[in-house]
């Protein structure tokens, strides 16, 4: 029973993903236009970044200017997540190294 359920869910999800990937235009014009490889639909924000990012942040690398300037709050959260995860690894693995006294 459990094996059959797992196989059925895996098959259904894989078939759905593959169907959307092969012909997305069956799901209406909205999704079909979005999922055409090589021709993204809404590019206003990105073309603003490409054309104005070099003047506003004086950086050649537009990805860096987005990561650290336009979307700086994302990067702050990301750095906090990394810091917290490392803190969590230290706390979880601390119970395993009780015999170590180098710090």
């Amino acid at each position: 029973m459990r094996k059959a359920l797992m196989a059925a869910s895996l098959f259904v999800l894989f078939a759905a993903l593959l169907y959307v990937a092969v012909n997305p235009s069956d799901f209406g014009a909205e999704l079909g236009d979005h999922l055409v490889f090589g021709e993204p639909k809404y590019t206003d924000m990105d073309s603003y970044f490409i054309h104005n990012g070099q003047n506003q942040t004086a950086a050649n690398n537009i990805v860096t200017s987005i990561v650290f300037d336009y979307r700086g709050f994302d990067t702050l959260g990301e750095a906090s997540v990394l810091f917290t995860a490392v803190l969590g690894v230290g706390v979880v693995l601390r119970m395993l190294r009780g015999d170590e006294n180098d710090e």
Partner: peptide, 8 residues
């Protein structure tokens, strides 16, 4: 160039 970005 790039102001605060290299520092960050």
């Amino acid at each position: 160039t790039a102001g605060l970005l290299p520092i960050m």
